[in-house]
């Protein structure tokens, strides 16, 4: 379970997150929607401590992410993350991209890491690209590579930060399909997304972030069918 309570985050004078409270239970797929600049990416970065926080607490399976004594590198293994920009390691083949962290972080043998990598690349539909370099892959394939790379750490949670918004429209589908597959397999996921269709069809809960707070959270039928807040309604009218 991921629990965020009273989270505040500032960048100098800019108060980005103003008291976020959020609980994500095991097995839940949560979509986070909201206007550009509302703090969605920052929230994800705080959850795996890629950004420091100003106040509040974030716990993952009861462990305080930002506490002094926390071994953050070990905790991050539980939290797979996929970014808007796909960030493949350009000097490694697809297989090596995925096998690297199992080998050096999980300390598995070379052979084991490669087996895991091959399995995960197969999983995301890149079984025929094991020896390709990222430069020879399309954006959609590189994004699926990034998903496989995160999965190879066998995380308990996956965080997606607009995984499809840097992609050409015709490549969005293949990445969303991969994310849908993960959701069906029972992965706990937090997906920051602009894809309202995905949010509606795949997620168990949808959160609308407005100006650094969670304005409204609920099942997709409620958020999309009967939003309670005016801000939510206005936002949804705009993106639809």
């Amino acid at each position: 379970m991921i629990e965020v309570s009273e989270l505040h985050k500032r960048f100098k004078d800019l108060h980005v997150l103003k008291g976020i409270n959020l609980v994500v239970e095991k097995g839940v797929v949560l979509s986070i929607v909201g206007a550009s600049g509302s703090g969605k990416s920052t929230l994800l970065y705080c959850i795996n401590a890629l950004e420091a926080i100003d106040s509040g607490t974030i716990t993952v399976d009861g462990e305080d992410v930002h506490a002094k004594g926390t071994d953050i590198n070990r905790l991050r293994r539980k939290l797979g993350m996929v970014f808007q920009q796909w960030n493949s390691f350009p000097h490694l083949t697809a297989l090596e991209n995925v096998a690297l962290s199992p080998r050096i972080v999980r300390k598995l043998s070379r052979a084991e890491s490669r087996d895991i990598a091959a399995k995960q690349l197969e999983h995301v539909g890149l079984g025929d690209k094991l020896n390709s370099y990222p430069s020879a892959l399309s954006g959609g394939q590189q994004q699926r590579l990034a998903i496989a790379r995160a999965l190879a750490m066998e995380p308990s949670y996956m965080l997606f930060d607009e995984a499809t918004s840097a992609l050409d429209p015709e490549l969005v589908g293949e990445v969303l399909d991969t994310m849908r597959l993960l959701a069906e397999e029972g992965m706990t996921m937090i997906c920051v997304t602009h894809e309202m269709g995905f949010a509606r069809d795949v997620s168990d809960r949808v959160a609308y972030v407005h100006d650094g707070t969670i304005e409204e959270i609920g099942p997709p039928e409620q958020i999309f069918g009967d939003p309670q807040s005016d801000n939510t309604r206005r936002f949804l009218a705009k993106v639809r």
Binding site: L50, N73, L79, M81, F83, Q85, N87, S101, M153
Partner: peptide
């Protein structure tokens, strides 16, 4: 962003330095 990606995989500062 690339370095954030490697840290998000659980690499330490020095692992990121050495391997990425």
């Amino acid at each position: 962003p690339l370095r954030r990606a490697s840290r998000s995989l659980g690499m330490t500062y020095w692992q990121d330095m050495m391997y990425v």
